[in-house]
Design a protein around this nucleic acid. Structure first.
Lengths: 139, 139
DNA sequence: TCAGTATATGCAAGTAACTTGCATTTGTCA
DNA sequence: TGACAAATGCAAGTTACTTGCATATACTGA
């Protein structure tokens, strides 16, 4: 069922169906926080899909180009990726436990308009991420 | 004059005064865009201050800890730094020419309040950077 | 259904941005 | 001015990738 959806998604994007690609698509669909490469590899290995680090990097690049995955930059010195079918959103990162939660609210659009007007630039995208202590770590 | 200010700033922070440290402080003060390590090294060398890459990394870390410099993360896979005496602000990066300009406006505080309320988290800081085409590259 | 071919993968090696260890040099302060 | 702590330089290590190339594998169409 899930398997079927994944295959279809790959076919729709003219991408060959391989175990590694199906596995990576599954992680992206099943994980609700942006994943890094080592998490993906762990998932694949625990599902007996023998995928090399290089392959995972390549798959994630292909997915990004195809619009299946979306890179997420959380100020960590490494890329994370999330499933691009999820609507665009921002994140909150707990600086103590490392937990990541989605932030769907965003009021930056009006600010973008202002900046475009005052600076004469054309804004294509913005990066907005929040850092602090999560509910549990606050106490 | 400038030199004197720099020395004083180092002394105020209980940091030893060395040519490399003075040089790095000068770049930070004189450059109006966040600088990366290679830019700093170029500046030092062009001013006949022979500083090693390692030293520059170390100085920038010391400055960050002392609150003299502030790290800036612009989604490039490397750190930049700016003079921390400048009030906190955001940036606009031109994706064509790479030019960086300051963005002083920010309306994210109210959003932070909302997120803190709805998610029960405590937000300490946020990352907000804009990407697009600068005035010149638009045309 | 199977052979041919284009493409995906794995492995080794390379790169960029740092970090660490350690011996040497250099500020600082008595 | 000299002693000592701290800063520097160099070499080597680390992490997050990327690239080249030979091999394996998925798709195509006969």
């Amino acid at each position: 069922m899930k398997q079927h959806d994944c295959k279809e998604e790959l076919r729709d994007n003219d991408l060959r169906i391989t175990p590694a690609r199906l596995g990576v698509l599954e992680v992206l669909e099943h994980t609700d926080t942006p994943v890094d490469v080592s998490t993906v590899i762990q998932y694949l290995h625990s599902h007996n899909i023998p995928a090399d680090e290089t392959t995972v990097f390549r798959i994630l690049r292909v997915y990004t180009e195809a619009g299946i995955a979306r890179p997420v930059q959380l100020d960590e010195g490494k890329q994370r990726f999330e499933y691009a079918a999820k609507p665009r959103h921002h994140h909150f990162v707990c600086e103590k436990c490392g937990g990541i939660t989605d932030v769907t609210e965003c009021n930056v659009e009006s600010l973008e308009k202002t900046i475009e007007r005052t600076q004469g630039v054309k804004i294509a995208r913005h990066l907005l991420e929040f850092f602090g202590l999560c509910r549990r770590c606050r106490s």
